[in-house]
């Protein structure tokens, strides 16, 4: 039913992932078969969480938004079209939820606390433990320091393997704007880690 999710390979750092979207059985997902929903969750929950955390969400906020994104997916699943890319759909919803959260966070003041606490910390994965901690720290820091518009494009294309055009759709910007932001982000990251 499902192809195994391939690993996001980026060699070197600034290359785009070669694949990320595993084949989703849309028919099973439309019928909301438990196995289908679980399989999508297994693949995309950690990815959405990483995307949101690197956009600046706290651990708790990222979890809340991941939950909301999947609840919306389940509610919408019976109406998904044949050409729907579940990954792009989920990133679009997650990004919109994040933007909405930030607007309200500004109002209630919690955003100020998030800003004051700096870039979000996150647990190390096994792969990370085998890689240069210094390089990793510089990259993570450089990504966190990117302006959010550039960071979102960078994370979607480099981190999640979307094509620049798909990232543009997720973010609601033109493909040209996405390419420009991506190029600028790559320049900044390259400079930071070189």
């Amino acid at each position: 039913m499902w192809e195994a999710a391939s690993t996001c390979v980026t060699v070197p750092l600034l290359a785009r992932c070669t694949h990320v979207d595993p084949v989703v059985d849309l028919a099973a997902l439309r019928r909301l078969e438990p196995g289908a929903v679980d399989a999508v969750f297994d693949v995309y929950a950690p990815r959405l969480n990483g995307f949101l955390r690197r956009l600046g969400a706290s651990v708790e906020v990222a979890e809340e938004l991941v939950q909301e994104a999947f609840v919306r997916l389940v509610r919408t699943a019976p109406r998904l079209r044949d050409d729907t890319r579940v990954s792009a759909w989920l990133y679009t919803v997650a990004h919109n939820l994040w933007r909405s959260h930030r607007r309200w966070a500004w109002v209630d003041g919690t955003r100020l606390l998030e800003l004051a606490s700096g870039p979000p910390a996150r647990p190390a994965t096994p792969a990370e433990l085998t890689t240069s901690a210094e390089t990793r720290a510089r990259v993570e820091s450089a990504v966190a320091a990117l302006p959010e518009a550039q960071r979102a494009v960078f994370l979607l294309v480099v981190g999640e393997g979307l094509a620049p055009g798909e990232a543009a759709e997720v973010l609601g910007i033109s493909p040209e704007a996405a390419r420009q932001r991506l190029a600028r982000a790559r320049d900044i990251i390259r400079e930071a880690v070189s």
Binding site: N49, G50, R136, V158, G159
Partner: peptide, 8 residues
């Protein structure tokens, strides 16, 4: 793998 952008 690029560990920096791994899923969390």
């Amino acid at each position: 793998n690029d560990p920096t952008l791994e899923p969390i």
